[in-house]
Computed example of a mutant assay.
Amino acid sequence: MQQYLQACAIIDWRDDAIVSTAQRLAAGSADRETTARRCFEFVRDEIPHSWDLQRNPVTCRASDVLRHKTGFCYAKSHLLAALLRANTIPAGLCYQRLLLDSEQHRYCLHGLNAVHLPEHGWVRIDARGNSGSISAQFVPPQEKLAFPVRGAGEADLPNIYTEPLPVVVEALQRAGDIYQLAGQLPDLQPATCG
């Protein structure tokens, strides 16, 4: 589990603001599941999805997501992993491959998390942010994610990553604004994600 507690350039949980926020969210918590729920709800509800509000800048590092209070799903998953790890709760990054445009057969990755809870083991959680018909919840051991995998070409990628996929980091760091990112969302064929 130690690898799912490490800091890295993107999951920079040793940043003072992340440590402070993580401590505030854990204050008075009876157990890890309660702390994990609070971290999840903070990222889901207090850090808006950039596209929902049409808000720049494009963020990537967890500390930048917290500072600017916005991020695409990938960036929000980076912040959630950082908050959980700062509270010594093992957390990883997960991805789904979803159909973006059926006419042009365009797909993109969707970023979410997995958290390890002693009572349940690994559970995937999705702090993308609720909007319209999207209703992601924290209900271990069940998974209530933002998007179901439905059609051909879509997939729940099976791995729990300790660091973000390079294709995700490159897309976030390359994009000058949310519109540029929306036109170049990262994608991988499921067979290349091992």
Rank of each mutant, 00 (worst) to 15 (best):
V58E: 13
S135W: 10
L66M: 07
Q96C: 08
L100W: 07
Q54S: 11
L25R: 02
L80M: 04
P48Q: 08
P90I: 11
I178D: 14
A114W: 01
F147H: 10
A82I: 04
R37Y: 08
G183T: 02
A22Y: 04
V19A: 15
G153T: 07
R24V: 02
L66P: 01
N56E: 15
D31K: 09
A182L: 13
W13P: 03
L83W: 08
F138K: 06
R61A: 12
D16G: 08
L83H: 06
T21C: 15
D187L: 03
V167E: 14
H68D: 15
H110P: 06
K144E: 13
E170D: 15
C60H: 05
C39H: 04
G176L: 12
S131H: 15
S131L: 09
H116E: 11
C73P: 04
V115S: 05
G129N: 07
A146V: 01
L93I: 08
Y179W: 15
A86P: 00
A91H: 05
A30R: 09
T70L: 05
Q2D: 15
K144S: 13
P190K: 12
A27L: 13
P166T: 08
M1V: 01
L145P: 06
Y95T: 02
Y107M: 13
T21E: 15
L66T: 04
W13M: 10
E154L: 13
E103D: 14
Q2L: 09
I160F: 09
R128T: 12
N159T: 03
A86R: 01
R128G: 04
Q184E: 14
E41G: 00
N87L: 02
A91C: 12
F42G: 05
P141H: 03
V149N: 09
R32H: 10
G71E: 07
G153F: 10
I125T: 06
V139K: 14
G111C: 00
Q189A: 15
L165C: 09
A136R: 10
M1D: 06
Q6A: 10
D187Q: 02
G28D: 11
V65A: 13
T21D: 13
A171N: 02
Q180Y: 07
Q189T: 06
R44A: 12
V115C: 05
Q137P: 01
S133Y: 01
Q173V: 04
S102V: 12
A127P: 02
L53V: 05
D31F: 08
G176H: 14
T88R: 13
D64P: 00
P57E: 12
A27C: 05
M1W: 11
D101T: 03
D12R: 00
E143A: 09
Y161S: 11
A7Y: 00
T59E: 14
Q2M: 12
R124P: 08
L83S: 03
R97P: 00
D64L: 08
E119D: 14
S102L: 11
L109V: 03
A30D: 05
A27D: 11
R150M: 10
R124Q: 07
P118H: 07
V58D: 14
S135V: 06
I10F: 15
N113K: 03
E143D: 05
S131W: 10
A146K: 07
L145E: 06
